[in-house]
């Protein structure tokens, strides 16, 4: 077969097609992030909604690797008051598990359920969930880590704890006011 300009154009078109629909692996650091807000971001990436070529019939979602799931941060008293319901189908088999209890048993479960809920409830839901890789800490298996080409930006700033701030930086912080002499701390 002779390599005509038309053939060359069609060959490059097929390469362009594969490049356009390339499935990326994104990494998201869940440290000190609200899992329910993060789940919306992750669900959009899993669906491919952040791509200009998104179409609901096109399977164009990316993989998402989430690290530090054990360090998620729930607002208000939600660790105590957010309940996960389960029923064993036997009489009296209903159970409610608080979020902190669920998190103690499995530190990736709260985020997994949040993402599952954020995804549309159609037949593609399980397929998209299979592209979500959750890890409790920041260690990622090598076969997963070698695929990662994209970093998702966190939604909230991670606050620095007092212990993380070095001693000299703490000392050099300007003194803004003095307590009065009769002030009792």
């Amino acid at each position: 077969m002779r390599l005509t300009p038309l053939l060359r154009r069609s060959l490059s078109a097929s390469v362009d097609q594969k490049l356009t629909f390339a499935r990326l692996w994104a990494v998201f650091d869940a440290k000190h992030q609200n899992p329910f807000n993060s789940a919306e971001l992750i669900a959009n990436v899993l669906q491919g909604k952040d791509k200009p070529l998104y179409h609901y019939h096109t399977d164009c979602g990316d993989h998402v690797v989430v690290i530090n799931c054990k360090d998620i941060s729930l607002p208000w008293y939600e660790w105590k008051y957010r309940m996960y319901y389960h029923h064993t189908d036997y009489a009296g088999g209903a159970s409610w598990t608080a979020a902190w209890e669920m998190h103690d048993k499995n530190p990736t479960k709260v985020l997994e359920k949040a993402v599952y809920r954020a995804l549309p409830g159609d037949l593609t839901r399980r397929l998209r969930m299979s592209r979500l890789h959750l890890y409790a800490d920041d260690s990622i298996p090598d076969e997963i880590k070698e695929n990662i080409t994209r970093q998702l930006r966190q939604l909230r700033k991670v606050p620095r704890k007092l212990d993380d701030i070095p001693e000299d930086e703490r000392r050099s912080f300007p003194k803004l006011f003095d307590f009065p002499e009769n002030h009792t701390l």
């Binding site: 990494v27 998201f28 650091d29 690290i67 990662i148 970093q151 930006r153 966190q154 909230r156 991670v158």
Partner: peptide, 16 residues
């Protein structure tokens, strides 16, 4: 960003 090793703190930090 191609030179950054992922996961990276700089690319991950939320924009203020």
């Amino acid at each position: 960003e191609n030179l950054e090793e992922l996961p990276s703190e700089r690319l991950s930090a939320a924009k203020a």
